[in-house]
Computed example of a mutant assay.
Amino acid sequence: MLFLKKGLKEKNMTTTLIIDHPWKESFNHQLLNTLIAGLEEDQKIYKVIDLYKDGFDPVMKTEELAGYQNGLVLDPLVLHYMNLLRETTQLVIVFPIWWYSSPASLKGFLDKVLLNEFAFFDGGNGIQPLLSIESVVVFTTSDQPTEGLEQHCTRSYKHQLTTTLEDVGLRNISWYHLGSLKQLGEDERQAYLSSAYSKL
């Protein structure tokens, strides 16, 4: 989905937002909507990838795996996502931490979209990045306190995702995590939402 507002100040800048949360009333979706409102107010081009709304299947099928190294695409939605990433200069990712990792849809997105000869090239001498995205902003939430989460998965979700994105050519990665979400009052939630767009 492409949104274009008239009178753009930065015509060559395109922000793609990825949301991985199944519930539209979630805080993650509130955060997404807040970011979209900021982009629209600043008259910037943006696109939204809603993995659940799109019905994205994160499971790598046998026939898909067989063509993986050749960049073979069997899922039209994967091809659509690849085309969006080609035009992206800023990537924003929003998701909750579940069991010390991302939900399955985001992991499947990385597995199925970041294909050889599209996101990277591996000729046997190490991965060579092929994407060129200038900045990445990641927003995550958890019901668990941030400190406890980091103690249990210091090199898990954060390290793995950051390393993957860097390997395919994404730069300037910023990460903002909001823990103890269920314990926060409405004022605290609104304060976080109010400051979110300034982080892009």
Score class of each variant (00 low, 15 high):
81 Y>W: 03
191 A>E: 12
184 L>F: 02
65 L>I: 10
181 L>E: 10
189 R>E: 12
93 I>K: 01
29 H>A: 02
156 S>R: 04
196 A>H: 05
104 A>F: 01
71 G>M: 07
18 I>L: 08
70 N>I: 01
15 T>W: 00
145 P>A: 11
156 S>K: 03
99 W>Q: 14
130 L>N: 12
186 E>C: 03
73 V>L: 08
4 L>N: 07
180 S>D: 13
66 A>Y: 08
108 G>D: 01
43 Q>R: 15
95 F>D: 01
47 K>I: 05
165 L>V: 10
61 K>N: 06
175 W>P: 09
171 R>V: 01
134 E>V: 07
46 Y>Q: 06
65 L>P: 00
84 L>I: 15
200 L>V: 10
200 L>S: 10
18 I>H: 01
183 Q>A: 15
116 N>F: 02
136 V>G: 01
172 N>K: 15
72 L>K: 14
175 W>N: 04
128 Q>V: 10
34 T>K: 07
129 P>Q: 05
189 R>V: 06
31 L>M: 15
42 D>G: 04
87 E>P: 01
63 E>G: 08
160 Q>A: 13
131 L>P: 08
110 L>G: 00
47 K>S: 07
8 L>D: 09
158 K>S: 12
155 R>E: 14
42 D>E: 13
116 N>E: 08
48 V>K: 06
135 S>C: 05
135 S>L: 03
7 G>E: 03
116 N>M: 07
96 P>C: 06
31 L>I: 14
30 Q>H: 08
122 D>C: 10
119 A>T: 11
198 S>Q: 12
24 K>S: 10
120 F>T: 11
194 S>D: 15
107 K>T: 13
104 A>W: 00
182 K>V: 12
5 K>H: 14
99 W>T: 14
198 S>R: 06
17 L>H: 01
89 T>R: 03
77 L>V: 06
77 L>E: 07
42 D>H: 13
131 L>W: 11
151 Q>W: 11
36 I>M: 14
137 V>M: 08
152 H>E: 15
107 K>H: 09
8 L>Q: 15
39 L>P: 05
79 L>I: 09
147 E>T: 15
107 K>C: 05
195 S>L: 13
37 A>G: 08
30 Q>W: 06
133 I>T: 07
96 P>T: 08
2 L>W: 09
143 D>K: 12
197 Y>I: 05
91 L>C: 06
176 Y>V: 13
135 S>H: 07
158 K>G: 06
84 L>G: 04
104 A>N: 00
46 Y>K: 02
108 G>L: 00
159 H>T: 14
81 Y>M: 02
120 F>C: 07
98 W>V: 05
57 D>C: 10
66 A>L: 03
152 H>F: 12
62 T>P: 02
73 V>S: 04
40 E>S: 13
24 K>D: 08
21 H>E: 10
29 H>Y: 14
48 V>N: 01
23 W>F: 13
158 K>V: 05
10 E>R: 07
38 G>C: 07
138 V>L: 11
57 D>W: 01
147 E>L: 11
15 T>Q: 02
83 N>M: 14
200 L>K: 10
167 D>A: 09
178 L>G: 02
66 A>C: 00
148 G>K: 11
134 E>A: 15
41 E>P: 00
